[in-house]
Every structure is written in C-alpha cells, then in structure tokens.
Amino acid sequence: MTDLNEYLAQKRLAVLARQKAAEADPRPVAVKARVRAMGRSGIREIRIRDFQIISDSKPDLAGYDLGPGSPEMQLGVLGSCITHITLIQAALREVPLDAVEVEVEADQHPPVGETATPSGPLHPHNIRYRLRLESTAPPETLRSLHEAIEAACPILSLLVNPQKVAGEMLLNGETISRLSRG
C-alpha cells in the first residue's frame, strides 16, 4: 500500500498542471447537481456527473434514514473540501503528511423546515471543524499550512462570504416564480 506522501507527489504534479491550464483558459467551469424526490419514500436522489447520492430524513421527519440529511451532507461537503485543500496545499508546499482527517460539527435547532425559532436560526450554525494531521513537519510549517487551507478552501469561502442565490419555479415547463436572495 502506498502512503499519503507518495500521493502528495502525484497531487503536486496534477495541481501544477491544472494551474497552468487555468492560466491559459481562466473561464469559469459550470458545476451542476440534479435532485429529485422519489415516490413513496421521499428520499432525495442526487445526481452529480455519473454519481448518485441518496439523501433522506430521520423517522421524525417521515424519512427512512436511508442516507444523510441535507445539513449533514453540507458538513460532509465542508469536511471533504478542507481535506482536499489540505492535500493540495501540502503538495504545493511539499509538507509531509502521513494522515489527514477532518471532523465537522454544527448546531441545528428544531423545528426543521420552518422559520427561525426563539432558540436559534433555521440553518446549521456555529460550524466548527477539527483538522487532525500526522506529520513530521514543524508546528510553524503546519500553522502556515492551516492559514493557506483556510484561504484556498472554496466551500469554506462559500459558507463565510455572502452569496447571491437565484431561484426559479417551473410548473409544467413554464416559469411561474423567480426569487433572488443575497
């Protein structure tokens, strides 16, 4: 089995090549997900490229607990992005890493699907993560790495910076409503 440091050498070459390609063509690339509710179970089938992910609710929201809920998936997405950016930044800086693990938590106040309550906001909040590394690098190098990770993580940036979100509702193929927030 190869270790993480061998992978970081491969990652460095891939990231440098991708950076060069982005400099040659800096246009944004569209990313897309499609979600549909499945009959009888209400599970959400998420399609991203050729991948399928199932999202479901716990029984207290009439779900079958067949997959994580949206707030849990959001935390997983943040953890995945922090992990990936850790690998990228370590590869670029040639920081040795033997192991990387991220744990993400947030607070969520019920009731879900309604407006904010006196006990707290509707959305997951007080988001916090714990990035665990195993490395032979000195602490000052790892602190610098942590700063670079936070500066480069797109999902962290998405969560901490105000975003504009536009929504459109279609009924039988015709737009009946448009809303925009942010």
Rank of each mutant, 00 (worst) to 15 (best):
Ile155Thr: 13
Gly79Met: 01
Pro121Phe: 05
Ile48Ala: 01
Glu150Lys: 09
Val102Thr: 12
Arg49Cys: 04
Arg18Met: 14
Glu140Ala: 14
Tyr64Arg: 05
Ile43Asp: 06
Ser57Arg: 03
Thr2Gly: 13
Gly120Asn: 07
Ala99Lys: 12
Met1Glu: 14
Glu174Val: 15
Leu179Ser: 13
Ala9Leu: 14
Ala21Tyr: 13
Val160Trp: 03
Pro28Asn: 08
Val160Pro: 04
Ile82Pro: 00
Arg44Tyr: 02
Val29Phe: 03
Gln19Cys: 12
Leu97Val: 05
Val35Asn: 06
Ala152Gln: 11
Leu61Val: 02
Glu168Pro: 11
Gly39Ser: 08
Ile88His: 00
Arg130Glu: 07
His109Asn: 11
Ile53Thr: 05
Gly42Ile: 03
Leu4Ser: 10
Ala14Asn: 14
Val160Asn: 11
Ile53Arg: 01
Gly42Asn: 02
Ala17Pro: 06
Pro139Ala: 13
Ile53Tyr: 02
Gln19Leu: 15
Ala14Met: 14
Arg18Gly: 08
Arg34Gln: 09
Pro96Asn: 06
Lys11Gln: 15
Ile43Thr: 04
Val31Asn: 09
Gln108Met: 10
Gly113Ala: 06
Glu72Arg: 01
His125Lys: 03
Leu158Cys: 13
Gln89Lys: 10
Pro138Arg: 12
Ile85Lys: 00
Glu150Pro: 04
Leu158Asn: 15
Pro71Val: 01
Arg44Thr: 02
Met38Trp: 06
Leu122Glu: 10
Arg44Ser: 05
Glu101Asn: 09
Leu66Val: 00
Leu97His: 07
Asp56Tyr: 04
Ala37Lys: 05
Glu103Arg: 10
Leu122Arg: 14
Val31Phe: 15
Gly67Pro: 01
Ser180Arg: 11
Arg130His: 09
Leu16Pro: 06
Leu61Ala: 05
Ile82Lys: 00
Leu142Asn: 08
Val165Tyr: 13
Ala62Cys: 01
Asp65Gly: 02
Ala137Gln: 09
Pro68Leu: 03
Lys164Tyr: 07
Ala151His: 12
Arg27His: 14
Val31Ile: 12
Met73Ile: 07
Ala116Lys: 04
Lys11Leu: 12
Pro68Met: 03
Arg49Phe: 03
Leu179Trp: 11
Ser70His: 01
Pro121Glu: 05
Val77Gln: 00
Ile176Glu: 08
Leu92Ala: 04
Leu142Pro: 07
Gln19Thr: 10
Thr86Pro: 01
Pro111Ile: 08
Cys153Arg: 04
Leu16Met: 13
Arg40Gln: 12
Leu171Lys: 12
Ser119Glu: 11
Pro139Trp: 14
Asn161Ile: 10
Val104Trp: 02
Asp107Ser: 07
Glu6Gly: 11
Ile48Phe: 00
Lys20Tyr: 09
Phe51Ala: 05
Arg49Gln: 09
Glu147Ile: 04
Lys11Ala: 14
Ser70Phe: 01
Thr86Met: 02
Ala99Phe: 09
Gly67His: 01
Ala106His: 03
Leu159Thr: 13
Asp65Val: 02
Thr175Val: 15
Ile85Met: 02
Met169Gln: 15
Glu147Gly: 10
Glu174Cys: 11
Ala62Asp: 06
Arg18Tyr: 13
Ile53Ala: 04
Glu140Ile: 11
Val100Ser: 02
Asn172Glu: 15
Gly79Ile: 00
Val77Met: 00
Thr2Ile: 14
Ser41Asn: 07
Leu142His: 08
Pro28Tyr: 09
Ala148Met: 07
Gln74Ile: 05
Ala91Cys: 05
Thr136Leu: 10
Leu159Glu: 10
Pro118Lys: 06
Pro59Thr: 01
